[in-house]
C-alpha cells in the first residue's frame, strides 16, 4: 500500500511566453467598440448629419440664378454638426466604462493603463478616420450630382476639392480622439460632452466678445476655426478677416490637442484609484 500524502497539491501551469500587450488590447477594444448600442447610434447620427444636412443645404442652391462661392463647403456643411456625433462616440467609449464600473474589469484584464488608452485611441481614431473619409467623399459626390448643370456646379478635379475631402475625414477622426481624451481625464459622460461642446462652440462665442488683438492672436488655435480652414477650398491665411493657419498646420495642432489630452488621461489613470 502506498502512503497517502497530505502535502497540498501545488497548482502548476505553463503561461504563454511574452505578455499581454497592445495586440491583445486592440482586438478586445474592437469587440467592445462594436458590442454596445451607442456605437451604431452615434454613427447613424453622424451619417444623418453629414449626408442629410448636405443634401438639404445643397438642394437649396438648386435653381439659384448665381454661382455659389465654394460649393464644396456648402455640401460638407453637415460636418460641423457631425463632429458632435463623433465627439460623443469618443467620449462614450471610455466614460461609459467609468459610469458602469466596466473599467474595473478592463483594468483587471490589462492593468497597464497606457496600453488600454492606446488601444482605445487606435480603434476610435481608425474607425472615425475610415468613416469620416467615406462620408466626405459620399457626401461630396451626392452634392455635386445635385448641383450638376447649375451655375454652382463643382467637380472633384476642381482646385482644392480633393484636399478638402481628405482633410475633412482627418478632422473628424481628430475630433473623435479629442472626445476620447477629454473623457479619459474627466471620466464622466455628461461633463465630457459639455466640455467638448464648450471647446467647439462656446470658446468661439466667448472669443468674439474679446478685443480684436486677442481675437487675432487666439482664434487660429480654436478647433472650430481649424475646421473652417479644412472645409474651405482656399483660405489665404485669413478667415473672415482674422489670421488663421493653413489647414495642414491646423490639423497638426488639433492632433497635438488630442495627444496631450490622451497622455494626460493616461497619467491620471496611473495615479488615480479606479
Amino acid at each position: 500500500m502506498t502512503a497517502v500524502s497530505n502535502a497540498p497539491v501545488s497548482f502548476e501551469r505553463e503561461l504563454p511566453s511574452g505578455r499581454a500587450g497592445l495586440r491583445q488590447a486592440l482586438s478586445a477594444e474592437w469587440t467592445k467598440f462594436w458590442s454596445v448600442r451607442s456605437t451604431p447610434w452615434s454613427l447613424f447620427a453622424l451619417i444623418v448629419a453629414t449626408i442629410g444636412l448636405g443634401a438639404l443645404s445643397t438642394n437649396a442652391l438648386h435653381g439659384q440664378p448665381f454661382a455659389f462661392p465654394d460649393p464644396t463647403r456648402r455640401i460638407l456643411v453637415g460636418f460641423n454638426l457631425g463632429q458632435f456625433a463623433i465627439g460623443v462616440l469618443g467620449v462614450m467609449f471610455i466614460s461609459a466604462e467609468y459610469g458602469t464600473g466596466q473599467i474595473r474589469s478592463t483594468l483587471s484584464a490589462m492593468p497597464r493603463r497606457p496600453v488600454v488608452v492606446a488601444a482605445k485611441a487606435i480603434v476610435m481614431g481608425g474607425v472615425s478616420l475610415v468613416v469620416g473619409e467615406i462620408l466626405s467623399f459620399v457626401t461630396f459626390f451626392m452634392g455635386s450630382a445635385i448641383l450638376a448643370g447649375t451655375q454652382s456646379h463643382v467637380s472633384i478635379g476642381d482646385s482644392g476639392v480633393m484636399r478638402v475631402l481628405v482633410e475633412s475625414g482627418i478632422y473628424l477622426a481628430l475630433m473623435g480622439l479629442i472626445g476620447l481624451g477629454l473623457a479619459t481625464i474627466l471620466r464622466n459622460t455628461a461633463g465630457s460632452i459639455a466640455t467638448f461642446a464648450g471647446l467647439v462652440l462656446i470658446l468661439t462665442l466667448l472669443l468674439s466678445a474679446m478685443p480684436a488683438s486677442i481675437i487675432n492672436a487666439v482664434s487660429r488655435y480654436l478647433p472650430a476655426n481649424i475646421g473652417a480652414t479644412v472645409f474651405a477650398v482656399s483660405t489665404p491665411g485669413r478667415l473672415q478677416g482674422t489670421p488663421v493657419f493653413s489647414s495642414q498646420v491646423g490639423l497638426v495642432i488639433l492632433a497635438l490637442y488630442a495627444l496631450v489630452l490622451l497622455c494626460g488621461g493616461c497619467i491620471l489613470m496611473i495615479r488615480r484609484d479606479t
Binding site: 478586445a28 469587440t31 467592445k32 458590442s35 454596445v36 451607442s38 466604462e97 458602469t100 474595473r104 474589469s105
Partner: peptide
C-alpha cells in the same frame, strides 16, 4: 458589478 449593461454576457467575456 463591473460590467457594461449594454453588452451580452458572451461579448463581455469574449472581450476580456
Amino acid at each position: 458589478r463591473a460590467i457594461h449593461p449594454g453588452r451580452s454576457a458572451r461579448s463581455h467575456l469574449w472581450s476580456l
